[in-house]
């Protein structure tokens, strides 16, 4: 398989300055690239710190500010009490689900390792996350919220948010933001168009 060619013709920032990105798209992405305050508005400080660590592991994102942005996006949604239009009936309302599950995660850490989740080694944190994914957390703190469904919902929300950031889209070579003039060569093979179109590289 021809692995990712280095995308070296342009960067997101260069694209944003070009006529290849529509005004509406540009406004949205410029805003998303802004550094933002990531203090929580809904979760308490300890829960927010825990959520940030979970996001860091789920997304394998070593850059702490990027994981914190995802956690802050989740927190902001909960603060605004916004829904994505549905939830599993067996789950509590989103606010309660997050608040309960994050507390339960911490309780599980204390019961297994006598420390708060945030104070555990990376290995132990990852082991707990694997337990959560399998629904094997046990303990009465999980009586009100399904660990399986919470893991699924958290993973989905964190993933969707992460891949809404230009640096994540750039990493996978998504050039769909630069479609103001549309695409002409859409089939196989696409070598010709690659020469014409700016592909995406790392941010400077």
């Amino acid at each position: 398989m021809s692995h990712n060619k280095p995308h070296q013709l342009a960067t997101t920032r260069q694209l944003l300055d070009s006529a290849l990105v529509s005004t509406a798209t540009k406004a949205v992405l410029e805003d998303r690239l802004q550094e933002k305050q990531t203090a929580p508005a809904f979760l308490d400080a300890a829960s927010f710190r825990l959520l940030t660590i979970l996001c860091r592991h789920l997304l394998a994102e070593e850059d702490g500010t990027r994981a914190a942005r995802v956690a802050a996006d989740i927190d902001a949604r909960l603060a605004a009490n916004k829904s994505n239009g549905w939830r599993y009936q067996q789950m509590p309302a989103d606010r309660d689900a997050y608040a309960l599950a994050l507390k339960a995660m911490d309780e599980t850490a204390r019961s297994n390792y006598q420390h708060a989740f945030a104070d555990l080694s990376t290995d132990k944190q990852l082991a707990l996350l694997h337990q959560l994914q399998k629904g094997e957390t046990g303990g009465e703190y999980w009586n009100k919220v399904s660990p399986l469904k919470f893991f699924e919902e958290l993973l989905c929300e964190a993933t969707e948010l992460y891949y809404s950031y230009p640096y994540a889209l750039e990493e996978i070579g998504f050039a769909g933001i630069a479609d103001a003039q549309g695409w002409k060569e859409i089939g196989l093979p696409q070598e010709k168009e690659e020469d014409k179109q700016p592909a995406i590289t790392q941010l400077p």
Partner: peptide, 19 residues
């Protein structure tokens, strides 16, 4: 915008329960 997250505004926002 050519941005999926922004375009979430097109989807019905009122919560439905799925069972």
């Amino acid at each position: 915008a050519s941005d999926e997250r922004e375009q979430n505004k097109l989807y019905w926002p009122h919560e439905r329960l799925s069972a």
